[in-house]
Simulated scan of single mutants.
Amino acid sequence: MRFINLLRSSSIAEIVFTDHVKQRLEKRNISDKLVESLLRRRQKDLRGVEQQGKNRFKLTYVHPEKEDTDLVIVVEVRERKSKMKLVIVTVFPQPSSRRIRVVDNE
């Protein structure tokens, strides 16, 4: 998947937070610096990528500040040559148990 390769290679040219997203981050007590840090430098904490549209992806990271919690970041990707512009759609915490699926074979 080209998006994951670009994300891992730190090919992010710009991260855009709309006013709406900034308000939601403040309300949820999530720092935009934390979101930016995860996207730019914390690829080892990336636990899942789900494509939600042609250029929209749901990224699940281990929350670096809260145990048993993930941080979900939904981004819209705009690509320019080999660099990406990420527009943050939403960010929210989620219990990490939602990421872990147990299959009962009985």
Score class of each variant (00 low, 15 high):
residue 60 T to P: 00
residue 30 I to R: 03
residue 80 R to K: 15
residue 40 R to S: 05
residue 24 R to D: 09
residue 54 K to T: 10
residue 68 D to I: 08
residue 94 Q to W: 01
residue 11 S to D: 09
residue 30 I to D: 05
residue 72 V to L: 10
residue 30 I to F: 02
residue 13 A to W: 10
residue 100 I to D: 03
residue 92 F to D: 01
residue 23 Q to P: 00
residue 37 S to D: 14
residue 91 V to M: 07
residue 14 E to D: 13
residue 33 K to L: 09
residue 98 R to C: 05
residue 97 S to D: 06
residue 58 K to H: 01
residue 85 K to V: 14
residue 104 D to Q: 07
residue 25 L to G: 11
residue 77 V to Y: 04
residue 42 R to S: 11
residue 92 F to E: 07
residue 65 E to V: 02
residue 70 D to V: 00
residue 88 I to E: 03
residue 79 E to W: 06
residue 95 P to T: 01
residue 20 H to M: 08
residue 75 V to P: 04
residue 31 S to G: 12
residue 52 Q to L: 15
residue 25 L to E: 08
residue 59 L to C: 04
residue 15 I to L: 11
residue 34 L to G: 08
residue 21 V to K: 13
residue 4 I to A: 07
residue 2 R to A: 10
residue 67 E to K: 15
residue 79 E to Y: 06
residue 17 F to V: 09
residue 45 D to W: 11
residue 28 R to I: 08
residue 78 R to G: 03
residue 42 R to Y: 09
residue 39 L to I: 02
residue 100 I to G: 01
residue 7 L to C: 07
residue 43 Q to H: 11
residue 99 R to M: 02
residue 34 L to T: 10
residue 56 R to E: 15
residue 40 R to T: 11
residue 95 P to N: 03
residue 14 E to P: 13
residue 105 N to D: 13
residue 93 P to F: 02
residue 70 D to G: 05
residue 48 G to P: 04
residue 41 R to P: 00
residue 77 V to S: 06
residue 32 D to G: 03
residue 93 P to I: 00
residue 75 V to W: 12
residue 47 R to P: 00
residue 11 S to K: 15
residue 67 E to C: 05
residue 29 N to R: 15
residue 86 L to N: 03
residue 68 D to P: 01
residue 88 I to H: 01
residue 6 L to E: 13
residue 92 F to H: 13
residue 54 K to S: 10
residue 42 R to K: 15
residue 52 Q to W: 04
residue 45 D to L: 15
residue 72 V to S: 02
residue 7 L to K: 13
residue 81 K to C: 00
residue 99 R to I: 02
residue 12 I to P: 14
residue 96 S to P: 00
residue 75 V to L: 04
residue 12 I to Y: 06
residue 106 E to R: 09
residue 22 K to V: 04
residue 8 R to M: 11
residue 3 F to L: 07
residue 83 K to C: 00
residue 38 L to S: 02
residue 51 Q to K: 15
residue 49 V to R: 08
residue 31 S to A: 15
residue 80 R to W: 02
residue 33 K to G: 02
residue 15 I to Q: 11
residue 80 R to F: 12
residue 86 L to F: 05
residue 60 T to Q: 10
residue 19 D to L: 06
residue 75 V to I: 12
residue 31 S to I: 03
residue 17 F to W: 11
residue 94 Q to K: 06
residue 3 F to T: 06
residue 58 K to R: 15
residue 105 N to M: 14
residue 91 V to R: 03
residue 49 V to M: 07
residue 61 Y to H: 06
residue 16 V to D: 08
residue 48 G to T: 14
